[in-house]
């Protein structure tokens, strides 16, 4: 079986588009495109919101509300939105499926970015915030020069969780007739073409791993070495737990 999967993946014919089939390259691009779009929108919404809630301490209920969204079954929401929205779009385009998918992806990406950003700002040592204000930083300077950089480790962990979740959910969106790497899994399933199905699984897993690796590298070069704990001998279990409870629920 593994050999057949390898053969399927290695067939250049499967990578290029043909008249009847969309190739891996195109589906990969599509997958990356609508994941990136959803993540960008979610980041634009959740990052400033999380920073402001953390900085002012007001609007905490929003964090709690966003976290309850996690109990929703992703597939169910995806199907529900699709049957609501899709009938309003006719014709050959997949807009009717794309819009509900993007909405779901954005809605699912927001909680982990939002709550991690909030937790990051909230976890900034009160003495550090006090010192920042006491030396004459304005509220905006405290937020941007101190709280934001100090929250980056948690923000990154939230964003990485969100990314994995979005990639995973975008795969499921192929269950509705939408492009992306999930196409191979569901088409393989429908046609009992298991090498194709498993090959699709390999591609999705590969995409997730590469995306996470890239984000890890970005994190490594943007987060100050003073925060990464490579120098501090003691670990901070509280912060880690916060990232577990708040971020990793979203990772799947």
């Amino acid at each position: 079986m593994i050999g057949e999967v390898f053969t399927w993946l290695n067939d250049p014919g499967h990578w290029k588009d043909t008249r009847f089939d969309t190739g891996i390259a195109t589906q990969l691009t599509a997958h990356v495109r609508f994941c990136a779009f959803a993540l960008l929108v979610a980041l634009i919404i959740a990052l400033p919101l999380g920073l402001v809630i953390g900085h002012t301490g007001r609007g905490r209920w929003l964090i709690a509300a966003a976290n309850t969204l996690r109990a929703l079954p992703t597939v169910g929401v995806l199907v529900l939105l699709t049957v609501v929205i899709a009938p309003h779009f006719y014709g050959r385009t997949d807009t009717g499926y794309l819009i509900p998918t993007e909405i779901v992806l954005i809605v699912l990406a927001i909680p982990s970015i939002l709550s991690n950003t909030f937790a990051g700002v909230e976890n900034v040592d009160p003495a550090v915030r006090d010192a920042a204000e006491g030396m004459g930083m304005t509220g905006k300077q405290v937020l941007l020069k101190v709280e934001l950089p100090c929250s980056l480790p948690l923000i990154f962990s939230g964003f990485r969780s969100a990314t994995l979740q979005v990639i995973a959910t975008a795969t499921i969106a192929s269950y509705l007739p939408l492009g992306g790497l999930g196409r191979f899994i569901y088409d393989g399933l429908a046609q009992q073409d298991f090498p194709q199905m498993i090959g699709g699984g390999v591609l999705v897993a590969g995409l997730a791993l590469v995306a996470d690796l890239l984000l890890y590298l970005v994190q490594r070069y943007t987060v100050s070495r003073g925060l990464t704990g490579r120098f501090s001998k003691k670990r901070i279990p509280d912060a880690r737990l916060a990232s577990v409870t708040q971020a990793e629920v979203a990772a799947v």
């Binding site: 204000e133 006491g134 030396m135 004459g136 100050s224």
Partner: peptide, 23 residues
Amino acid sequence: DAAQLRRGIGYVIQHAGLFPHRT
């Protein structure tokens, strides 16, 4: 102005409150 005032006053606190992300 509070920020202007504070910039002209040295401020030292119990746990130092150093910025962990800066050298």
